[in-house]
Nucleic acid binder design. Structure first.
Lengths: 285, 285
DNA sequence: ATAACCGTTGAAATAAAATTACAATATAAT
DNA sequence: ATTATATTGTAATTTTATTTCAACGGTTAT
């Protein structure tokens, strides 16, 4: 479940005046709130108990204030500054807390954003085609490589390259047997869109891994895998890593789901490949 | 605070008949209890509401049943199967839970493994030298590229390549101004060790990002950054991704710590670079 | 400028939940 | 068997959460 305090902070700008007063108090004293009654809290802020209840139901429609307190207490062993932007005064420990928390949130959001239906469609495509082309540019190229390395381990043929010409050549040469995985955080990368058009014209299935499903790229896709459903991107400075980790995580889910399709066969393949690497390169498996 | 359920289990033998009934129910369905009222619970067990309240006050004398529920909810958000190995029968939801949990654990372990002292020594080296060479092979090459991309954003010159010849050439040509970042999960990669030897012979500072600090590579390092302190590596199949994410996370910490050294300057640089990218490539920043 | 409207808020009434007082029952000791 | 004591449940009481509805304030249309 998404962090309650985090959600409140996100919603803050859209709230009414009284709601903001309530939100601010809760953000400042989450632990205290868990032990208060509606009346206590209304008096402290100050506002009416009705407003408190209404506020609670914004975030916990079913359970009201009682459930709200439960959720609050479930997460109130953390302190609240971890939701904030990174600042120059942060100690190493603050930094660790903030970054860890963000990664955690990103994973949770990606979990809800990736539906079973979409993952399964993607797996189906990967299963049906025997040549997979993975493409990403900039930071997303790193993910494209990760995709390749993962699927190599179970003997799936994946080609990746950040040169559109190279990719197009092989894709067209094998268009009947190929599917393409396009990774773009923004979904507006010129090269990514160009590749998607090319694939579409040639009826090659397109799996897109991206930040939201309204982008130009998403519209061209056969299947859209949305990682990290976050609407606003408050932090200029941390976007890149969390979105990369979200992508990695999404690929991991895809990989394991694919793995499951033929569990024992893939286990054998992976053990073979690990043994080989361990013996010859002493490298990470 | 001591785990509530644990305390209940300990007290179990000394409790009366009805109290034991209550205790057993709570131990079995802790999460359900958090959403029940005294009446609901009394009916389920079955017993009287008075007994429930009395029971609660054994463990939470001040707060009664309400506080009891709060403590219960604070500790009952994990379930236990998530520790298991991935199995072919897992639903997509199981898979999500297990993978998320592992990533979370990895991050936590990396947090404790990376000491302030080591991170700060690493930052110092990065700060003193104006040419950074990052090297990794296999999966670790992806991390090496991530390192490069991150530091590019604040105008730091980082060269990466998975060809040892290329890297050696530039490293030796600029040995006075250079530092090297070597990434190897195992710490036993032949090429990584070779590069470390070369650097050491030429008095080039060596930052090593690796899994433990007993490896051959770790021994050659000026600073060892240990990610993911896990001793056991139960899962053959998931090691790669979690270690990659641990590496990414470690690099992220390093990056932000470095960033903090000259906060305002770096903020400016990053905004410039983001604007440029957004304008010209519409790509992930 | 003013009327009509709509979203926001709080006071008071109501419903639900927790707690307590006390009586009933069971258990143990003499 | 009787009394003392501990345990439990019923019902009354208190506290807490929730809903209803009227009042307020700001906005738009006339």
């Amino acid at each position: 479940m998404e962090s309650l305090i985090f959600s409140i902070k996100q919603a803050l700008p859209n709230l009414t005046k009284t709601e903001q007063k309530i939100a601010n108090y809760i953000i400042e004293y989450p632990t205290d709130v868990t032990t208060m009654s509606v009346q206590d809290l209304a008096q402290k802020i100050p506002t009416s108990s009705a407003s408190i209840v209404r506020f609670s139901k914004l975030f916990c429609p079913d359970t009201g204030f009682s459930g709200f307190k439960l959720r609050l207490s479930a997460e109130s062993d953390q302190d609240s500054e971890i939701y904030d932007e990174i600042s120059p005064n942060d100690s190493m420990d603050d930094l660790k807390k903030k970054l860890s928390f963000r990664i955690n949130q990103t994973i949770l959001r990606t979990n809800t954003a990736l539906t079973d239906a979409n993952l399964n469609s993607a797996i189906k495509i990967l299963h049906e085609k025997n040549l997979i082309v993975s493409f990403g540019i900039g930071a997303s190229h790193i993910t494209a490589e990760d995709f390749q390395q993962k699927f190599f381990r179970i003997g799936k043929t994946v080609i990746t390259n950040n040169d559109l010409h190279v990719i197009s050549t092989i894709l067209l040469a094998k268009k009947e047997q190929a599917a393409v995985v396009i990774i773009s955080n923004s979904g507006e990368t010129k090269e990514a869109i160009e590749l998607a058009h090319l694939a579409k014209q040639n009826k090659i299935p397109i799996i897109v891994l991206t930040h939201n499903n309204v982008s130009a790229l998403a519209k061209l896709a056969t299947v859209v895998l949305v990682h990290d459903d976050s609407t606003e991107n408050s932090s200029l400075r941390s976007a890149a890593t969390t979105s990369l980790i979200a992508q990695f995580y999404a690929i991991d889910l895809l990989y394991y789901s694919y793995f499951k399709l033929d569990f024992s066969k893939h286990v054998k393949e992976i053990i073979t490949s690990q043994k080989y690497i361990a013996k010859n390169f002493k490298e990470e498996s």
